[in-house]
Amino acid sequence: MKMTIAYLYHDLLNLYGDVGNIMALKYHLEEQKIDVTIKYLSVNDKKYFNKYDLVYIGSGTDKNLLIALEDLKNYKNDIKKYIDNNKFILATGNSFELFGKYIRIKSNVIKTLNIFNYFVEYDYDLKDRIVKDVNYKCNLINKNIIGFENHPGYLNSKEEHLFEDEGVKKKNFYGSYVIGPLLVRNPEFCKYFIKELIHNKDSKYKIIDGNYKLDELAYKN
């Protein structure tokens, strides 16, 4: 099997080592004998959403997020179609804010892609920023999700949460504020995600046991 991952805005949105998610995906997909291609794409690079099996996007500073948004707006319909076709998007950190209706910073409303109905608000007082270790229940797997959050935005969403009270999951769109990176810190979730990704493409593909020895030791300790 061949798989193409589009790593969007790798040079703008990698504030918290989000690239670790790409490393984990590549490692564990190759373990499953999958031929993985990673497209490093940014502003001004032409994007062909019909050619990707997974789109990944990470977290950035407020300014970089807006630079990415301007470019991403050119692909709104492509992204909509991509999600409707049950293709995968993983958006970690503040980048998943871009797929909602708007981001309001004090009185300034920034229109985002408007693919989902959620929106984000913040008044940008440092003391109100969400900075914490997390431990979320996750109904998709029987292990809790660990990692960090560090962002100013408060999510208002009626969509299904990805984790307990956190993030967004709709079809195969996975959006979460959890950094750490998410797939590196959470081997069970990584296994689940990889299985879903592969079976979405070929439901009969046989998944073999991967090497998660260190991942599990790090998770437990």
């Binding site: 670790g20 490393m23 984990a24 490692y27 590196v184 260190l214 991942d215 030791l217 790090a218 300790n221």
Partner: peptide, 12 residues
Amino acid sequence: YKYDIALRMKYA
């Protein structure tokens, strides 16, 4: 953070 460091080495 010894295991996290080791894990980072693996992914490097």
